[in-house]
Simulated scan of single mutants.
Amino acid sequence: MRTRLAVSLIAASLLTSGAALAQSTTVVGAHNGAEAGGAVAGPLGAMVGGTVGAAVGAGLEIPNAVINSIDEERAPSVVVHERVVVGEPLPDTVVLRPVPRYTEYRYAVVNDRRVIVDPRTRRVIKIID
Score class of each variant (00 low, 15 high):
Ile127Met: 09
Leu15Lys: 05
Gly18Leu: 04
Val95Trp: 07
Thr26Leu: 10
Pro119His: 09
Val124Trp: 06
Ala58Leu: 10
Ser77Asn: 04
Arg97Leu: 15
Lys126Gln: 12
Ala30Val: 05
Asn68Gly: 03
Ala41Cys: 04
Val110His: 07
Asp118Val: 07
Ala19Asn: 14
Leu9Gly: 15
Gly87Asn: 03
Arg74Tyr: 12
Gly42Thr: 01
Leu21Met: 08
Ile62Val: 15
Val78Glu: 08
His81Pro: 02
Ile127Val: 15
Tyr102Lys: 04
Glu72Leu: 09
Thr51Gln: 06
Pro100Ala: 01
Gly37His: 05
Ala54Glu: 00
Val7Asn: 03
Gly37Val: 01
Gln23Met: 11
Leu9Arg: 14
Ile128Tyr: 10
Ser69Ile: 09
Ile128Ser: 09
Pro98Gln: 02
Val7Arg: 04
Glu88Phe: 03
Arg123Gly: 02
Thr3Tyr: 11
Val95Ser: 13
Ser69Phe: 00
Val27Thr: 11
Val66Phe: 15
Val56Asp: 02
Thr16Cys: 07
Arg83His: 01
Asn32Thr: 14
Thr51Asn: 13
Arg123Glu: 09
Leu5Met: 14
Val85Ala: 07
Asp71Arg: 15
Ala65Ile: 03
Ala54Gly: 15
Ala39Pro: 00
Ser69Met: 00
Ser24Ile: 02
Asp112Pro: 08
Val48Leu: 12
Val48Asn: 11
Gly33Gln: 12
Ser13Lys: 15
His31Lys: 13
Lys126Phe: 00
Glu72Asn: 05
Met47His: 08
Val66Ala: 05
Pro63Thr: 11
Ile128Ala: 13
Leu60Pro: 01
Ala34Ile: 13
Pro100Asn: 06
Val124Ile: 10
Leu9Pro: 13
Ala65Met: 08
Pro98Ser: 04
Gly45Phe: 06
Leu60Ser: 10
Glu104Phe: 06
Tyr107Leu: 04
Ile125Thr: 03
Ile67His: 06
Ile127His: 00
Ala20Val: 08
Ala11Gly: 14
Thr3Ser: 11
Thr3Val: 14
Gly18Trp: 12
Gly45Arg: 05
Arg74Ala: 11
Val79Arg: 14
Tyr102His: 09
Val124Met: 07
Glu35Val: 11
Val66Thr: 08
Val85Gln: 04
Val27Leu: 15
Ser13Asn: 14
Leu90Arg: 10
Ala39Cys: 01
Glu104Gln: 06
Ala55Met: 12
Arg123Gln: 09
Ile116Phe: 02
Ile116Thr: 10
Val7His: 12
Gly59Ala: 04
Arg113Met: 00
